[in-house]
């Protein structure tokens, strides 16, 4: 073992680069929160200051108690959790099949799934609207879950497949030699090892559904079933934009995403399978 001395200038450079990246990535979030706590009367006078001279939680109060925002929020939560759950379950099943079995038409299915990812969403808005309308499912949150699930499944499946691929086949076979059926092997050995994959997929799909605007805007017009990104647009009136409240609502919308990632991040840690094979 030799201790390699790293060049201090290099280390410094690394941290400077990281810092620059963080500033760049987090600045919009900071700005969001800053505007949310700036009193309305100061928004335009102190708009470019890094910190307002006085702060207030009025915007949050208004958003929570005097608008439909909480309802939007609930709708979004329902749609996003629903989509994440349904997509992940289906993608896990499909990913497992792709990873472990050879079956006729596998290549074709993969190709078709890839093709669905190649079209810009704008192109298929009209047909989707037509389908959903003729099913009588406009303004229903279920239609959103179905549409989001359909759009997220291909990517989620490839993601899950790569997680299954990373688990040695030997493990399942060992389990089957130990007396498991294939399904028991899946449940007792493979599933616990796929938790990071499930976590990542859940997180990915949840965020995608949480911030989706296009389809929600088109399929939902009813105030009752608006999701939160559509709801945000209600802060834009014909004559003005209520920046403070909009930003307050936006800040609140960050909370579930953050909570969700805090919850799943322990499953995202790598190295869960280490120790399985020789090493």
């Amino acid at each position: 073992m030799s201790v390699t001395r790293t060049n201090p200038a290099l280390t410094l450079g690394k941290y400077v680069a990281l810092l620059a990246y963080l500033l760049f990535a987090l600045f919009p979030l900071y700005w969001l929160v800053k505007i949310a706590i700036t009193p309305d009367r100061l928004i335009f006078t102190e708009g470019t200051d890094l910190w307002p001279s006085t702060t207030t939680l009025d915007n949050f109060r208004t958003v929570i108690f005097q608008t439909d925002f909480m309802a939007f929020f609930g709708n979004s939560l329902y749609v996003s959790l629903g989509t994440a759950a349904v997509t992940t379950i289906l993608a896990a099943g499909a990913g497992y099949a792709f990873s472990r079995f050879d079956f006729g038409g596998k290549k074709i299915i993969v190709a078709v799934m890839l093709i669905t990812q190649m079209f810009p969403l704008l192109m298929i808005i009209a047909p989707i609207y037509k389908i959903v309308a003729s099913l009588g499912m406009l303004n229903s949150l279920t239609s959103l879950i179905v549409v989001y699930t359909a759009f997220n499944i291909p990517f989620a499946t490839f993601l899950m497949q790569s997680f299954f691929d990373a688990i040695p086949k030997d493990l399942e076979e060992a389990a089957m030699m130990d007396g498991c059926t294939r399904f028991q092997a899946l449940r007792k050995v493979i599933l616990p090892l796929t938790l990071p994959g499930l976590g990542a997929t859940l997180g990915f799909v949840f965020t995608a559904a949480w911030s989706e605007l296009l389809f929600a805007l088109m399929l939902i017009s009813d105030n009752e079933s608006m999701t939160f990104p559509v709801g945000l647009l209600t802060f834009v009136s014909r004559f003005s934009v209520d920046w403070g409240q909009m930003m307050a609502a936006g800040s609140l919308a960050l909370i579930p995403s953050c909570l969700f990632f805090i919850f799943i991040q322990r499953y995202l840690v790598q190295g869960l399978t280490s120790g399985a094979v020789k090493g």
Binding site: A174, M177, V189, L193, A276
Partner: peptide
């Protein structure tokens, strides 16, 4: 029948 794998295939969890 019991089998010992070359990779050992121990259940990591």
């Amino acid at each position: 029948i019991a089998m010992v794998f070359q990779s050992y295939a121990l259940y990591p969890h």
